[in-house]
Design a protein around this nucleic acid. Structure first.
Length: 312
DNA sequence: TGAATTTGACCCAT
DNA sequence: ATGGGTCAAATTCA
């Protein structure tokens, strides 16, 4: 996994990213400190806007960098993870064969009793346009595109694939960045917690356990590949991963979040979940979500580390 | 009735 | 030739 000849450019971008992220963090901290105070609504909104701008710029840069250096040593065939990767969920950051669209993967583990609909909700509004049986995959793959594709020309798409090994695990492959207004809406619900690269699985699980307790989901089954469970009152529960495996990977994929609107028709073989729920959930989902983000290989000292509990 | 989903057909890359 | 991704007509839903 050598850095390619674009290493220098990459370093440059990384530096820019650092600056942007630092800026974003500062704004975030300001916002945080204002939360408890009597600061004006405008002031907070201004800060939030600045944070979003930082995100936006960062993402844009990363988008370009993705084109510079997109490689995927782990082209784990979409669909059927034949290899037993369940343990070490490598980042499936894959060079999209489709032009230079950024592509990244997010994994969602559904806790028992959790409405899949909600668990998969990522803040964006999606429209399903296809479903396909994939060779070697037990479950069909769902194809979704942004609801605003027509009206706003938003090219973001995502694929949802249920894991063979673990039916509770959903792998969501995102492609493209939302150019619709949803992007800014969702910006606020992004991140959350970044695991230190040297954080052990035990520590991880501890965190998970704590989170589960917090949400009252005590019977959560922690799988080995489960990364984290977070809980906060936002439309989706997301987290940035940053573990050792991830760190070996290329770091130029855009991670952005979209949100799902599912009618669970395709996934309703889980007797346990509440099939009655509908789309566009605004849940405080206790589900576990592992987001393979473009930030994952930023070290703990990276500004992004500062986002740690910032949104929580 | 409009929007969302389903599903078979088609297209395209490998 | 095959499999993955998308299209679009039919169907369902709200």
């Amino acid at each position: 996994m050598e850095r390619n000849s674009n290493g220098r450019e990459w370093e440059k971008m990384k530096k820019e990213l650092n600056e942007l992220m630092t800026e974003g963090r500062d704004y975030a901290q300001q916002l945080k400190s204002q939360l408890g105070s009597t600061s004006s609504q405008e002031s907070r909104e201004h800060l939030a806007k600045k944070i979003l701008e930082s995100y936006h710029k960062s993402l844009t840069i990363m988008n370009y960098s993705g084109e510079l250096d997109q490689v995927s040593p782990h082209s784990h065939g979409t669909g059927s993870p034949k290899s037993d990767d369940s343990d070490h969920q490598e980042p499936h950051i894959i060079q999209s064969s489709k032009k230079s669209m950024p592509r990244w993967t997010r994994k969602v583990i559904i806790a028992p009793g959790v409405v899949i609909d909600r668990a998969l909700d990522d803040g964006f509004s999606w429209r399903k346009y296809g479903q396909k049986d994939i060779l070697g995959a037990k479950f069909p793959r769902g194809y979704h595109r942004c609801t605003y594709r027509k009206s706003k020309g938003c090219e973001a798409t995502k694929q949802v694939q249920r894991s063979n090994e673990d039916p509770m695990l959903f792998e969501i492959i995102y492609r493209g960045i939302h150019s619709c207004s949803q992007a800014s809406n969702v910006g606020l619900i992004i991140p959350v917690q970044v695991l230190e690269p040297n954080q052990t699985q035990e520590q991880e699980n501890l965190e998970i356990g704590k989170a589960s307790l917090d949400t009252g989901h005590h019977n959560y089954n922690h799988q080995a590949h489960l990364h984290q469970t977070l809980n906060y009152p936002l439309p989706s529960t997301l987290n940035l991963e940053s573990n050792n495996v991830m760190l070996q990977e290329k770091d130029h994929n855009i991670g952005f979040l979209g949100s799902t609107s599912y009618s669970d028709a395709n996934y309703n073989f889980l007797a346990s979940y509440d099939a009655g729920s509908a789309s566009h959930s605004t849940s405080n989902s206790p589900s576990t979500i592992g987001l393979e983000s473009p930030f994952e290989n930023f070290g703990p000292s990276h500004p992004f580390g500062g986002f740690g509990g910032f949104y929580s």
